[in-house]
Amino acid sequence: MTSGPLSLETLQPMTRHILRCRERRVAEASDLLGLDLPRSAYGTASHADRHALWLGPDEWLILAPEPFAATADVWAAIGASFVEVSDRQVALQLSGAGADTCLAGGCPLDLALPAFPIGACARTVFHKAEIIVWRTGSSRFQVEIGRSFAPYVTRLLSQQVQRGRSLAVPT
């Protein structure tokens, strides 16, 4: 499988929400979202362009290209909290051969495919910033970063990417 050259790009703005609810409300929340909310660590679920990333047993990051129709009342009715955080964080996409090694410069998780397969996500750290790392391909990651931490993470990742590119041996 080819994975292409290392690259780092900032993704377009998207709609983000933090969903929080009790476990017994997960089924209803899933119905409202139109996808099966993941129920365990590292889990993600997608339907069309809509994604749910497990952050904790009562917390999910919901990503979508467009705003949601459901209002606060609908969520309140099932005892859930659905708070928009679209502008709270920004997303980078890191892809190409050695993307996992770039992350390993500051992220302590085991990102080998068997331990962190495609679709896995985790909130963790990168150097001194909190990130959410989501593997969207065998060598492609989406990294969600708090808005004001983005320049810091981007610079550190760019250094790794540049270095990784200079090391890449043409095949």
Binding site: I18, R20, S81, V83, E84, V85, S86, D87, R88, S148
Partner: peptide
């Protein structure tokens, strides 16, 4: 339920 919105606003 708590959600940090420091950087949202």
């Amino acid at each position: 339920w708590l959600t940090s919105v420091t950087e949202q606003w």
